[in-house]
Design a protein around this nucleic acid. Sequence first.
DNA 1: TGCTATGGTGAGTCCGGACTCAATTGCATG
DNA 2: CATGCAATTGAGTCCGGACTCACCATAGCA
Lengths: 348, 348
Amino acid sequence: MTVADVAREAGVAKATASRALGGYGAVSDEARDRVLAAAEALGYRPNELARSMNTGKSKTIGVVVGDIENGYFGLAMRGISDAAKRAGYDIILVNTSEDVEAEIDAVRLLLDKRVDGLIVAPASAYRTEHLREVHQSGHPLVLLDRRIESLPAVSVGVDIAPAARAATRALVAEGHRRIAFVSALGTDGERYSGLPLGVSSVTDRLVGILQGLEETGIPISPELIRFEAHGAEKTHAVIADLLALSEPPTAILLSDSLVALNVLLAFRELGIKVPRDVSVVAFDDVDWAAITDPPMTVVSQPIYDVGVTAAEELLRLMRGMAPDATTLRLPAALVERDSIGPVAVSAQ
Amino acid sequence: MTVADVAREAGVAKATASRALGGYGAVSDEARDRVLAAAEALGYRPNELARSMNTGKSKTIGVVVGDIENGYFGLAMRGISDAAKRAGYDIILVNTSEDVEAEIDAVRLLLDKRVDGLIVAPASAYRTEHLREVHQSGHPLVLLDRRIESLPAVSVGVDIAPAARAATRALVAEGHRRIAFVSALGTDGERYSGLPLGVSSVTDRLVGILQGLEETGIPISPELIRFEAHGAEKTHAVIADLLALSEPPTAILLSDSLVALNVLLAFRELGIKVPRDVSVVAFDDVDWAAITDPPMTVVSQPIYDVGVTAAEELLRLMRGMAPDATTLRLPAALVERDSIGPVAVSAQ
DNA sequence: TGCTATGGTGAGTCCGGACTCAATTGCATG
DNA sequence: CATGCAATTGAGTCCGGACTCACCATAGCA
């Protein structure tokens, strides 16, 4: 069923049918009625591919994330999806498994499919040529969750440093001086060797934490800053290692909800009680944080809104408008529950 | 940059450039080299839209789910995505918020965009004309998680009834006779009034439970079968109501992980201890089930594999092959942890 | 030498709408 | 009644690859 079929059925020229169907140009009421009736009778549906072809618009945006299975991106995805749908856009979703090569391929492929814009959660802050190309070639691009310093593309994320600082100060207020940070981030070396890190959202957490430490006059101990805690085993090892230190941490900040889960699992295996033995604060107010024992103090992030905002900024760019700002950070908040306690006597 | 540009640059005709680039037909080595060099120099990338236009294939599949934010679909999505990527397909994801109208629109829109196939988790077992049309018009269609009795389309899901039966028997073995089932499913009436339900995956759970009950000679109490437990408040109300019964349940089966979360929250507010006061089994081995207090006994479902299988079956259909079966059910398993205990003395 | 396979090539068409442009019509105005 | 203007319409082109078809050249064969 094509416009030509409809036109024949309606007894008009292809151009007239096309106008009536597309709702542009001038068409007499009579012709429009005939065309619409014919389209209805024939069950005509426009071929969006053909339409995209000469409008140059596909009404589709590409979203590239590291891991949809991760609730964080799932929720952001939902925000993007809702906002995009409101504007009549569809979404092509690509999962990269946090692999830069896959990300490069994905971006290229999406551009080949002529998406109108891209939202990318970059897997790496180092390998960014492909994103720079996209941005420089004028394709609307919004960075999700993570920003890239050297790339002037719009990025939408969470202003996590102040909340990280607040979390740190809350721990210090309870007497903690040995405060650790555990992240799943893969680093080149095993050890912390200064900022920035490969992923800006983790860097921001650490910036806030270090700030909170400095303000309260607590020296920074690089051995308490740990990475590569991905998976239950590695996380268990990291925690066991931390706890075996001559001066072990009395409090731990957990970089995301997956790390938090694995750490809680490790605690259970190690017989560690929260907050009796160790106090804990996790980033991201995941749904199950309220039912842990005890309920977990967390830094809550407006992830859905990050998704919505990212999509809306992209829509602005696609309309040729200037972005609201190059870097948009939505506020995070410390949600105090019961996983922070005073420093254990035995640990002092 | 089009083939025409490349052809001009290489000094050959459009057709030759097209052949060299597309890898079909006969091209001399010399011409191919010149074309490829020109394409490289010009940074040529094929327009997949144009390509799709006359191949009739878009190398894209549409996925329609009720809620990506839900970890269940997130994981299934990951499976679909991985399998699709292996075969060179992209995915257009549409979230319907479990709204049938949105689902109908989504299916139509995806077809207009000429996706090569569709994977749909139908929001309703009643409003299915749109899916029937899709199937009858010959478009490859795979139903995810839920099947529709009257529709002979391929469906891929979990064989949950045997596991539900096992879970029920495990409860009965501990002496439970008042066993409730709580689901978030929206029903017409408030009360249970027989099978089937509007969503086959929930029906299957109940079928298995009722079977387990019958086999052990326990009478079925419709007042213990509850729906519409969506959101924390409604779930709290449902639980409070169940517990206020003259003969309250001593064990509860929870239809999915979100219901489980809300029920655990309600228990905390109500001061109910698991398994001392009430025993619990939840469907879906969500990641946090191992860190609840106590660790929760669950029915584990191979959701990722369901996604992979759904995508692979769709790929078969798209290749014109017969499906492996009309209904594919992957096995579920009872994972026994510590949320089942003997019947409390006070409740007997 | 004459013939046919065969590889290689270019011109041109097709996919299905959007859009340009020129032509036609109707109606109002001078 | 002629002219002007706007509304309406149809023919045809374009978007960018895929693909058909006719044609040319060379090689192989009788």
